[in-house]
Simulated scan of single mutants.
Amino acid sequence: MSTDDLAARRRRIAQMTTIGQRLGYLLYLAAAALFFSGFATSFRGPLVTAVIACLVVGSLVLAPAIIFSYAVRAADREEPLA
């Protein structure tokens, strides 16, 4: 694999991790907003389901994104391509 291919692959993974982190944190923010709106009014079944769904999906998206972003940064430090 040439260094250009490797650099392009790293940049693509870095872009995907950025999108994943933004989406994960956005889902956490939505969960917090839904929780506090439910706290201010009354917790109903669909609202609780939405909060839990945002937390679960946010965790499933955010955890790999964070791990892969650390991996890309470590690879850049270990073997700079550009």
Score class of each variant (00 low, 15 high):
48 V>H: 09
54 C>G: 03
76 D>Y: 03
60 L>D: 00
17 T>D: 04
52 I>W: 02
37 S>F: 04
56 V>Y: 00
62 L>V: 06
29 L>A: 15
27 L>H: 01
69 S>Q: 11
66 I>W: 04
32 A>F: 05
61 V>G: 03
73 R>V: 08
71 A>W: 09
32 A>S: 10
51 V>E: 15
69 S>N: 07
77 R>A: 15
79 E>H: 09
53 A>I: 01
64 P>I: 08
24 G>F: 05
27 L>E: 00
29 L>Y: 11
54 C>E: 01
45 G>Q: 13
39 F>G: 02
54 C>K: 01
78 E>W: 13
9 R>S: 12
61 V>L: 08
56 V>K: 00
64 P>Y: 02
62 L>M: 13
59 S>F: 08
44 R>K: 13
46 P>L: 10
11 R>G: 09
47 L>V: 13
68 F>C: 02
40 A>I: 14
38 G>D: 05
35 F>Q: 14
4 D>P: 06
71 A>F: 09
9 R>K: 10
67 I>M: 03
21 Q>V: 04
57 V>H: 01
13 I>V: 15
25 Y>S: 05
48 V>T: 14
56 V>P: 04
51 V>M: 15
24 G>N: 08
75 A>G: 04
23 L>N: 08
16 M>P: 00
5 D>Y: 03
26 L>C: 10
69 S>W: 00
33 A>K: 12
49 T>L: 11
13 I>T: 12
5 D>W: 02
20 G>F: 02
66 I>A: 11
52 I>T: 15
49 T>E: 14
69 S>K: 01
9 R>C: 12
28 Y>T: 09
58 G>S: 07
8 A>T: 11
82 A>T: 14
58 G>Y: 06
18 T>G: 13
23 L>G: 03
81 L>D: 04
66 I>G: 02
7 A>M: 06
6 L>V: 13
72 V>S: 02
28 Y>E: 10
75 A>H: 00
19 I>V: 15
37 S>V: 13
31 A>E: 08
53 A>D: 04
68 F>Q: 06
80 P>F: 04
28 Y>Q: 10
31 A>F: 02
20 G>M: 06
1 M>K: 13
23 L>S: 13
62 L>D: 07
5 D>G: 07
76 D>A: 06
69 S>F: 00
38 G>P: 08
37 S>R: 15
82 A>N: 11
81 L>G: 09
20 G>N: 03
46 P>K: 06
71 A>V: 09
70 Y>K: 08
72 V>E: 03
57 V>I: 15
12 R>F: 10
73 R>I: 05
19 I>F: 02
57 V>A: 04
44 R>L: 07
16 M>T: 01
72 V>F: 09
41 T>A: 15
16 M>L: 15
24 G>Y: 08
71 A>D: 12
24 G>T: 07
16 M>Q: 02
7 A>D: 10
2 S>W: 04
34 L>E: 07
26 L>N: 06
59 S>P: 03
21 Q>T: 04
6 L>R: 14
69 S>E: 05
8 A>W: 09
51 V>A: 07
77 R>I: 12
64 P>A: 10
40 A>V: 11
32 A>D: 01
8 A>Y: 11
39 F>L: 14
12 R>Y: 05
72 V>L: 04
42 S>G: 11
68 F>V: 08
12 R>G: 05
59 S>W: 05
64 P>R: 11
28 Y>G: 14
